[in-house]
Amino acid sequence: MMEHTVKAFDHDIGQLRGLIAQMGGLAEQAIARAMETLRRQDLEGAAEIVAGDKAIDALQIQVEALAVRIIALRAPMADDLREVVAALKIAGVVERIGDYAKNIAKRVPSIEWHSEVEPLSVLPAMATLAVNMVRDALDAFAARDAEGATRVAASDRALDDFYNSLFRILVTHMMENPKTIGQMAHVLFIAKNLERVGDHAVNVAEMVHFAATGAHMAERDRGHSPVQ
């Protein structure tokens, strides 16, 4: 893309994109690590993730300050304006993804991990799918890639299907093993959190699409399937 006549403008936009990439990297890692601490029953690691969420929150504040500064000083137009607005909104969404990672980490002490237990056995694959969606959405932002964003939105259906089948497995498991209901309720919340992470990845993808093209993503690409 051609440079701005005012070079400092390019520098500001570059800095904004850098902050989003950094935030996104931390949030994506937090989800993946929260799942890892659950599997390893690593309570210390889980506590670190809870504490580490503050770094994501701090980055969001930096993004907001920089975006407001760019709007005030540069009065961006067209794709620049869309990109700054998208960055502002994406920062808010990524911050929420960080909160879900924190929420998963907080539940680690309440769940005993047994990989042979069916609901637990499918959870890591679901988490991988959600994390990939977040990463792909942020990659699409970095590359201003509307098609990549559309693919992220389309993959949400698979995550929703995952959640729906896990929900059924969990209900069956709880009926058969009433003693585990306490733990499995936490697992259900984790699954729901992962499903929400996917929705937020779609939100990011929609903003990437708008920033890149100026048009909103077509409804059929957004892939909203009914979720229990």
Binding site: M1, M2, E3, H4, T5, V6, F9, R74, P76, M77, A78, D79, D80, L81, R82, T213, G214, A215
Partner: peptide, 19 residues
């Protein structure tokens, strides 16, 4: 025109990339 210009030349001008 100011949020989603159709032409590349318009975009370059209004976003300060002209010249």
């Amino acid at each position: 025109l100011f949020t989603s210009p159709r032409e590349e030349r318009t975009k370059d001008y209004i976003t300060g990339r002209y010249g």
